[in-house]
Design a protein around this nucleic acid. Structure first.
Length: 516
RNA sequence: GGCCGUGUACCCAAGUGGCCUAAGGGAACGGAUUGCAAAUCCGUGAUUCGUGGGUUCAAAUCCCACCACGGCCUCCA
């Protein structure tokens, strides 16, 4: 059974699915807001949720995983968080319009910068591409079942129903400015998740709430549920006038609609703890009258890049696509983002990416060697050996599977799981049954999911490079055949200048890109 | 000001009272191999766990103080 640190209770708790021991576990993850490309920090959080669901599945328990794609624009003007300010979708639209003008928009992208839904779709599509390359299982499943990745713009009626329910039950009120607010003092547990108390919350400390909005609330911590604003970029009719819903509402409504009024697991980045998840708990419990909302809260810490906070101005800001374009394989990026324990800040480095790539290459070689052994055994028709294999004691990998699983069950200790795998690979496989060893390796990879993602992402630039490299390689091979080492080495220098490294092996020369 | 988390070798990173004179990976170095390389395989590698105190027979692990870094305090994963 998987044990996980629960943010709400503050300690590790076993996962006991509401539906019974075999699940399915109902799991809701806060996903991206699609007004820009997701960066590696976003993906650390999403991929850790993915590792968690795969670890649960490894123990034989089914998971129903839902991740939202937020397509409503939120305010950019943080000083006016409760309304007003410019919508992020509108800003994204301007950015796209400029990109279109300067020709930096990706080929084939025909998009109306004034249509917020089109902008959201544009970035949602790109997000799904990245997510699928990185092995985010829910994104792969959503190809067949789009409901698993819901969009809030299609759930506004359910959100309005929740606002109405909260007003009816006396947990929400219409202020004199017409805005519907949640009354935090009507919910004594408000603050339990984040450890905040209502009196200790410094009013407006985040600098995001205007004094004007604060003045109309009964308590400074009351948060917006519905904002009437007929001029807003995206608006819907409601009993409180045309406007838009509070941002916390979408997750409450979609989790309830797709998974139930109480769920087993809820995940997000550490910044979601307050206010977002705190508010979700308040809304869901007060609206549905259930004793809990999510039974276990899973939060991933942020990452830093080369020891520094990631920011565009420092030039250490990476999206997944940036790295793919440099020739980084999805497998290496995936492993680099999940190999540090989710509850500590991880330090993303290019060196770390290289380290991961080497590890994955080693695992791949072992998988290929095992496949070769199995094939050789099949063609040789050596029945006696096959029988001996079937009866053999578990090999290193088969034995490691238990400690691998145990490490993951212990609050998702990925580093220890990887160590178990690495240790097994260093041991003697000669007497082990290759089929069973491969099966164990594949089983571990069902969580890590790197073996089938260990290829650079195809692109026009990658194709061009390949053609260039192949031409140089042909010259070098000819020079080597003629034992003209000077010419051969000169070509190797040229390849190095292109960021390409060559390896001469018994079956010919292979090459790979060096990530810089 | 309140709440939360982190600090382990050159780098990433596990370990949270005795099995730790600290796992695993990478780099580096030595060897095998190679036209030379790269890759691969084998080997070496922290008497020490941010700093200073304390508790204990015993501390990286518990307590206190300090320093540094990260997150939240109403729309950043």
């Amino acid at each position: 059974m998987v044990r996980i640190h629960d943010t709400l209770s503050g300690h590790d708790v076993g996962l006991h699915p509401l539906a019974g021991p075999n699940g399915p576990v109902t799991f809701y993850s806060c996903g991206p807001t699609v007004y820009d490309d997701a960066h590696i920090g976003n993906f650390r959080s999403f991929l850790n949720a993915d590792i968690l669901r795969r670890a649960i599945e490894l123990t034989g328990v089914a998971v129903r995983h839902v991740m939202n794609i937020t397509d409503v624009g939120h305010m950019t003007d943080d000083a006016q968080a409760d309304g007003g300010g410019e919508d992020k979708m509108a800003v994204a639209g301007r950015r796209l319009a400029e990109a279109k003008k300067s020709g930096t928009l990706p080929a084939g992208a025909t998009i109306d910068p004034n249509d917020p839904l089109a902008i959201a779709d544009f970035y949602a599509t790109r997000f799904l591409e990245d997510a699928r390359l990185l092995g985010l299982k829910v994104a792969i499943e959503a190809e067949r079942d789009p409901a698993l990745m819901p969009r809030p713009t299609r759930w506004v009626p359910q959100m309005i129903a929740m606002v109405q329910g909260l007003v009816d039950r006396g947990h929400a009120y219409v202020a004199r400015d017409g805005v519907v607010y949640f009354d935090v003092r009507s919910f004594p547990d408000y603050g339990k998740l984040s450890g905040n108390t209502l009196d200790a919350l410094r009013e407006g400390e985040g600098g995001r709430v205007s004094a004007e909005n604060q003045a109309s609330k009964r308590h400074p911590a009351d948060f917006m549920l519905w904002k009437p604003d007929a001029k807003h970029l995206m608006k819907w009719d409601s009993p409180w006038g045309a406007g838009y819903p509070g941002w916390h509402l979408e997750c409450s409504a979609m989790a309830a609609g797709l998974l139930g009024e109480q769920i087993d697991l809820h995940s997000g980045g550490e910044d979601n703890i307050f206010p977002h998840h705190e508010c979700e708990i308040a809304q869901s419990r007060c609206c549905f009258g259930k004793p809990t909302f999510a039974r276990l809260w899973f939060h991933t810490r942020h990452l830093v890049v080369e020891g520094q906070k990631m920011s565009k101005s420092k030039g250490n800001f990476f999206t997944a696509r940036d790295l793919f374009a440099k020739g980084v394989t999805p497998a290496a990026l995936r492993l680099e983002l999940v190999r540090t324990h989710y509850r500590t800040n991880s330090n993303f480095t290019l060196q770390g990416l290289t380290d991961c790539q080497r590890m994955i290459d080693r695992w791949s070689r072992h998988a290929e060697a095992l496949e070769a052994s199995i094939a050789a055994l099949r063609t040789s028709g050596n029945v006696a050996l096959a029988v001996r294999h079937a009866a053999a004691t578990p090999g290193p990998l088969e034995s490691a599977l238990a400690s691998f699983t145990e490490a993951l069950c212990d609050d998702l200790n990925v580093a220890r799981a990887i160590a178990a795998l690495n240790e097994a690979l260093g041991q003697d496989h000669l007497n082990a049954c290759p089929a069973r060893e491969l099966k164990a390796l594949r089983r571990m990879d069902s969580v890590l999911d790197v073996l089938d993602r260990n290829r650079p992402v195809a692109s026009k630039a990658a194709d061009d490079l390949e053609a260039q490299v192949n031409a140089l390689l042909a010259r070098r091979t000819a020079a080597r055949a003629a034992k003209d080492w000077a010419a051969s080495d000169q070509v190797r220098d040229e390849l190095a200048a292109l960021g390409v490294q060559v390896k001469d092996g018994p079956t010919g020369t292979i090459w790979s890109r060096v990530v810089r």
